[in-house]
Nucleic acid binder design. Structure first.
Length: 316
DNA sequence: TTTCTGTAGGGAAAAGCCCGGG
DNA sequence: TCCCGGGCTTTTCCCTACAGAA
């Protein structure tokens, strides 16, 4: 499995026509800005400093983004935009033939979150819209497919709307009924009407809040009929049951090895890619697993203790 | 033999989201 | 249409065991 997918800027940028843009209300335009700023911040975060282009300034300042005759994301400084494309192309060894429409870049998919150890935390494209946009990148070749291109857009829309009547105007996702759509739209607006009165955590759905409440009550209604172990969520029970059945539904595409859970497969895949996202801040040695790093750090603690002892003996 | 490292099995807790049925 | 329960998927963190290399 290739953990990294190559996509174009158009893949992650939602390109509205003037008419579509006019239909958006203030909050939707604000959401659009937030999402695009987020996408750009991801690029800046992984090292593409030139992503701080005029478009970023436009987004940050809330300037009007749709410009008659130019559409979206047309830099006020063509020279800088060109420099940006040059850098990306140089970085990724892509032919310059297609530079008129393509800004190649590499994104991590939601299934493959980037882990930036220097911050000590996992990073993944977080917004729902961004995640949805990333679903469009699966096995996508480097071809330009602006959403304003109707020849692309029509069949593309049909993928989402087949047999469904209510479509999200922000991400294009379609639903069989409009209440599902309304609920889905909350994932864009951030609206979470169900709030836990104990911890204040809020959720989009009442059932999510109920599920959350079990973490406060300690209730575990799902019990394994083989060993009696109980779980708060049915999916956690199912995960556990695989330890009894031996079911291993997750298979490595490179070596065929199978695993009982998704995270174990992803961890295993790092042995193929050589990815070692966990780095010791004392000696710089990197590890593929967090626990291996922690274990290694213990060896430094041993060294520290020895240093204390040696200093103590020096003093005597 | 000991220590360290690579790798994998599995537990636990939690959250996001969708679907179907009442 | 709304609510609810159920289900799927994913993430994060953790502990532990085993094998092999240094």
């Amino acid at each position: 499995m290739q953990p990294l997918e190559s996509v174009t800027f158009e893949d992650v940028a939602v390109d509205f026509t003037q008419e579509e843009w006019a239909l958006l209300d203030t909050s939707q335009r604000k959401l659009f800005r937030d999402v695009m700023l987020e996408n750009i911040s991801h690029l800046v975060f992984v090292g593409y400093q030139h992503c701080k282009l005029d478009v970023t300034f436009q987004l940050e300042q809330g300037e009007e983004l749709w410009i008659e005759g130019r559409g979206f994301f047309q830099s006020h400084s063509p020279g800088r935009e060109s420099a940006f494309k040059e850098e990306l192309l140089a970085t990724q060894h892509i032919s310059k033939k297609d530079t008129s429409t393509i800004i190649p870049m590499t994104f991590h998919t939601p299934e493959d979150p980037c882990e930036y150890n220097d911050l000590g935390e996992d990073f993944s494209p977080s917004s729902t819209l961004t995640q949805h946009l990333l679903t469009h990148t699966e096995k996508t070749p480097n071809i330009s497919k602006s959403h304003s291109d109707q020849s692309y857009l029509n069949p593309h829309k049909q993928i989402h709307t087949r047999g469904k009547s209510c479509e999200c105007h922000l991400c294009g996702k379609a639903f069989s009924n409009c209440s599902s759509l309304r609920r889905h739209e909350m994932t864009h607006t951030g609206e979470k009407p169900y709030e836990c009165h104990i911890c204040g955590n809020a959720f989009i759905q009442s059932s999510d809040l109920r599920k959350h409440n079990l973490t406060h009550t300690g209730e575990k209604p799902y019990e394994c009929h083989l060993c009696g172990k109980a779980f708060s969520q049915s999916s956690n029970l199912r995960q556990h049951e695989r330890t009894h059945t031996g079911e291993q539904p997750y298979e490595c595409q490179l070596c065929g090895k199978t695993f009982s859970k998704c995270s174990a497969l992803r961890r295993h895949e790092r042995t193929h890619t050589g990815e070692k996202p966990y780095e010791c801040h004392l000696c710089g040695k990197a590890f593929s697993q967090c626990s291996a790093l922690r274990r290694h750090e213990g060896t430094h603690n041993g060294e520290k203790i020895m240093n204390v002892f040696s200093k103590y003996s020096d003093l005597r």
